[in-house]
Simulated scan of single mutants.
Amino acid sequence: MDTNATRDLFDRYHACWEARDPARIAALHTPDSIFHLHSSQPPAQGREAIRTAAAETFALVPDLTFHLLALRVGDDFWAARMTMTGTSAAGNEVAVDLADFVLVRDGEVLEKHSYVDGPAMTAALTPPS
């Protein structure tokens, strides 16, 4: 792949997350892909597990939105810095920093490693007392 093809994949993939569509997200992954949200969750491996993990994310924050702050794209990777916003299922405002590192193989996502601001995410997901 070249950088333009990787950028096109990023745009299509990001659109799936913006549409909150777990099936379309999973379809852009390789069959053996890994999606790892590095916030004390084990990695999801394979399209079905990735679809489930994405659906669980949207259940936690049904109106989840991503605001792209920075993007670097290479022939077989992208790195992005974003802010996630929305309202959690617990009713709290979500405003959490996110960094993604994604490896690409043959036009599909091979590995997606997402790093979030853990304390901010925990606060957003915790029901008010």
Rank of each mutant, 00 (worst) to 15 (best):
V109Y: 05
T87W: 03
A90N: 04
L64W: 05
W78F: 11
M82V: 11
V102N: 00
L68N: 04
A59W: 05
L68D: 05
L64P: 11
V116G: 01
V61H: 05
S88C: 07
R51F: 11
G107C: 07
K112F: 15
I50Q: 00
N92D: 01
L68S: 09
F66L: 05
A54Y: 04
L103G: 15
T83N: 14
V104K: 00
A54G: 06
A89Q: 11
R105F: 14
A79P: 04
V73Y: 01
A44H: 07
A44R: 08
L68R: 07
L60R: 15
V96R: 01
A54L: 01
T83Q: 13
G107P: 04
V102T: 03
L98V: 15
L98W: 09
A90D: 06
E111K: 05
Y115C: 02
D76Y: 02
A89N: 06
V104G: 04
L64V: 11
P42N: 06
Q41N: 13
E93W: 09
L110D: 15
F77L: 07
L64A: 10
V102K: 00
R72N: 12
T57A: 12
F101L: 02
L69T: 09
G46V: 03
P62K: 06
D76A: 13
L68W: 06
L69C: 12
A99S: 10
I50G: 00
A80Y: 05
P43G: 04
K112E: 13
G74S: 03
V61R: 08
A90K: 07
A53M: 02
A55D: 09
L69V: 11
F101Y: 13
D75M: 08
T57G: 11
F101R: 03
T85W: 09
R47Q: 08
F58M: 03
R105A: 13
V102P: 00
F101K: 00
T87D: 00
D63G: 06
F77K: 06
L98Q: 07
E48K: 14
V61D: 02
E48R: 14
E108P: 08
A70C: 12
Q45E: 09
L71Y: 00
T52S: 05
A53H: 06
P42D: 09
A49Q: 11
N92L: 00
P43H: 05
E111A: 07
D76C: 10
H113V: 12
R51A: 15
A54F: 08
H67W: 08
A95D: 10
G74L: 01
K112L: 14
D100L: 07
F77A: 09
M82R: 11
G86M: 04
D106F: 07
L103A: 13
F66Y: 09
D97G: 14
E93T: 14
D106H: 03
P42Q: 10
V102F: 01
H67R: 08
H113E: 11
A53W: 04
P43R: 06
R72V: 12
V73T: 06
P42S: 08
T57W: 07
A54S: 06
Q41A: 13
M84T: 15
L68E: 03
V104F: 02
A90E: 07
K112T: 14
V102M: 02
A55C: 11
L103V: 15
R72E: 11
A80P: 07
T87I: 10
V116T: 15
R81Y: 10
G86F: 01
V94Q: 02
E108G: 12
M84S: 12
A89V: 05
S88E: 03
L98G: 10
